[in-house]
C-alpha cells in the first residue's frame, strides 16, 4: 500500500472525514500515521475535537492496537519561511520580505509556488527517516483540495516548471513530482452515490490519469442502508395499503390510516433513490478502480464515529497490508484490484 495517501473529493462529500478515518485505519496495529491538511480550514482539529492545530506535528489520536495518528496543518507561508531559513539563513530579512508582500506574493499569488510548498512539506514527511533509518511515519494521509483542483494541485511540476525554470523551487518541484508520480503515492477520490459527485469523480480520474498521477481508490461515502428490497417497495406502492394499515395497527401504531400514505411515499422515494444509486454504482464500477464504502452516520460525524469508519475501512481490507508498510521498493501490483491504472 502506498505510503502517501492523498484524499480528494467533490465539496460536500466528506473528504476530511474520510481522510481522518483512513489515518486511523492505517495506524492500527501499532503503526504511526500523519494526517495533514493544506487548506487552512482546521477541519482535522474539529473532527478530533481538539484545539486548532499549529504548524507542528502532534499526536492527535491513538488507534486500536497502540497506533498513533499525528496531525499537521501545513501553512504555505510558514513553510516558505522555514524553507528560506533552512537554505538562506534569512533571519530578519525574511520578516522584511514579508513586510514588503513578497511572501504573500510567493505563497498566494505566484501560481503553483504555494502548491509546491504544501505538497513539498507533505513529501518531506513521507520520506523522513529516524536515526535507525526507518520511516518516521508509516503513512502520510493528506486531506487534499477538492476533485476539481486536485490534478492542478498535485501536478506542481507543470505549474512551476514553466515559470521557475531553475532554482530551489524548481528543484523542489522536481523532487515532489518524483514522489507524487511514483507508486509511493495513491490519490483517492471520495464521492457520494449521486449524479454530480460521480460525474466529477469520473472527470477527476481522467484528469489524474492524463497527468500520470497514481489513482488509488474510489471511496463511496455516506452510503445509506437499503432497508427494503425493490420487490417489496414495488409491492408497497401497489395495492397492499389496506394490509399495511392493519399490520401497522397490530404492531401497535396508532392512527395507522393516516400514516400509510406518507410511509409508502417515503418508501417510493427510497426506491427511487435506490434505483439512482444503483446507476451511480454501476458508473463507478465502470471506472475499473478498487472501491471502498463508508456508511452514513446516523448521529453525524463524532469522534467515536470516526473510529467506526476506520473499522469499516479495515473490514474492507484498507490498510491491511502491514507487511509492506515500511518497505521502500515500488509496490506495483500489490494492491488488490491493481488500482494504479495510470498511463492508460
Amino acid at each position: 500500500m502506498s505510503r502517501f495517501q492523498v484524499v480528494s473529493g467533490k465539496g460536500g462529500t466528506g473528504k476530511t472525514t474520510v481522510a481522518a478515518a483512513l489515518a486511523l485505519a492505517l495506524a492500527t496495529e501499532g503503526r504511526r500515521t500523519l494526517l495533514v491538511e493544506v487548506e487552512g480550514r482546521q477541519g482535522i482539529a474539529q473532527l478530533f475535537e481538539s484545539e486548532a492545530l499549529p504548524y507542528e506535528e502532534r499526536r492527535i489520536a491513538v488507534a486500536p492496537g497502540g497506533g498513533e495518528v499525528h496531525a499537521l496543518a501545513i501553512d504555505a507561508e510558514r513553510a516558505l519561511l522555514d524553507y528560506l531559513q533552512m537554505f538562506y539563513k534569512l533571519g530578519s530579512a525574511g520578516r522584511a520580505l514579508k513586510k514588503l508582500g513578497a511572501i504573500d506574493f510567493a505563497t498566494t499569488i505566484a501560481p503553483g509556488v504555494r502548491d509546491v510548498l504544501l505538497t513539498g512539506k507533505a513529501c518531506e514527511a513521507v520520506r523522513r527517516k529516524d536515526k535507525q533509518g526507518r520511516f518516521v511515519y508509516d503513512y502520510v494521509i493528506m486531506d487534499a483540495p477538492p476533485t476539481g483542483r486536485i490534478t492542478r494541485f498535485l501536478n506542481v511540476n507543470d505549474e512551476v516548471a514553466g515559470l521557475a525554470r531553475i532554482g530551489p523551487i524548481h528543484n523542489q518541484a522536481q523532487a515532489v513530482m518524483r514522489v507524487l508520480k511514483s507508486a509511493e503515492t495513491a490519490v483517492h477520490l471520495v464521492t457520494l452515490l449521486e449524479e454530480m459527485p460521480v460525474q466529477e469523480t469520473a472527470d477527476g480520474i481522467a484528469d489524474l490519469r492524463a497527468a500520470e498521477l497514481p489513482v488509488g481508490r474510489v471511496v463511496v461515502n455516506m452510503v445509506r442502508p437499503h432497508l427494503l428490497d425493490e420487490d417489496a417497495l414495488r409491492t408497497a406502492s401497489g395495492g397492499r395499503r389496506k394490509e399495511i394499515a392493519k399490520t401497522l395497527t397490530r404492531a401497535g401504531v396508532t392512527g395507522s390510516a393516516g400514516l400509510v400514505r406518507p410511509l409508502v411515499e417515503q418508501a417510493a422515494e427510497h426506491a427511487q433513490r435506490v434505483g439512482l444509486e444503483r446507476e451511480q454504482r454501476a458508473a463507478l464500477a465502470g471506472l475499473g478502480l478498487p472501491m471502498a464504502e463508508l456508511p452514513l452516520l446516523g448521529e453525524g460525524v463524532t469522534l467515536p464515529a470516526l473510529y467506526e469508519l476506520a473499522e469499516e475501512f479495515r473490514k474492507q481490507g484498507v490498510g491491511d497490508e502491514s507487511a509492506d508498510a515500511t518497505g521502500e521498493a515500488p509496490r506495483d501490483g500489490k494492491r488488490r484490484g491493481s488500482g494504479r491504472g495510470v498511463g492508460s
Binding site: 445509506r224 427494503l228 409491492t235 399490520t247 401497522l248 401504531v253 417515503q266 446516523g298
Partner: peptide, 16 residues
C-alpha cells in the same frame, strides 16, 4: 411478507 414489508416501512421511517 406484509409484516416484513411494514416493518421495512417503519425502519425506513425511523431512519428518516
Amino acid at each position: 411478507s406484509v409484516e416484513q414489508l411494514t416493518a421495512g416501512l417503519l425502519r425506513l421511517h425511523a431512519e428518516r
